[in-house]
Amino acid sequence: MEEHVPAVINLTYLWKKEREELGEKVIETIKGFGAEGIEYCMQCGACSSICPLATTGFEWYNRRLIKAIDFGIRDELFDDVTPWACVACNRCVEVCPRNVNPFEVMFAMRRLMIEELAVPMTAVQALKSLYDHGHAVYTTGREARKKVGLPEKPPTTDSDEKALEELRVLLRNTKLPELGLFPMS
């Protein structure tokens, strides 16, 4: 099931890699990307019990991602889509007894992946769609909307050129253009 991460993890190799290749611990990198509470995690599982990713079969949901990072696993997770599937429902933040803020870990992982230009296809599509339409998941169901008497496009960036342009300016000012998904500012 865990296709990207080998069945037996060589911790000595990871430890050496952190020291010699990366120059810092993976957990420090992730903290630098905003997940400052990660080291307080005691793996109690309260976050995963209510995480939509954990219940829909994603491999590296909050608690397991935290553990993997703690072990120094990093590159092996770059092909995994889990962080990009996080819906930011914030429930993990609310139930965490240690203020770890697992949601921030998910997002820190996204930031690391962007930094390393290691973005899975699913995420690339989502980001492109975000730039083109203002929606990471492009809305469908236009026929259904028409049928119940609603405008074909919802009153979002999808139907508001000005709002969409504002969003694009924001996106162009992030690190995302470096991925070549959309033009630089």
Binding site: C44, G45, A46, C47, S48, S49, I50, R91, V95, P97
Partner: peptide, 8 residues
Amino acid sequence: FVRGIVGN
């Protein structure tokens, strides 16, 4: 015994 805290 289950190692895991109930979240909900």
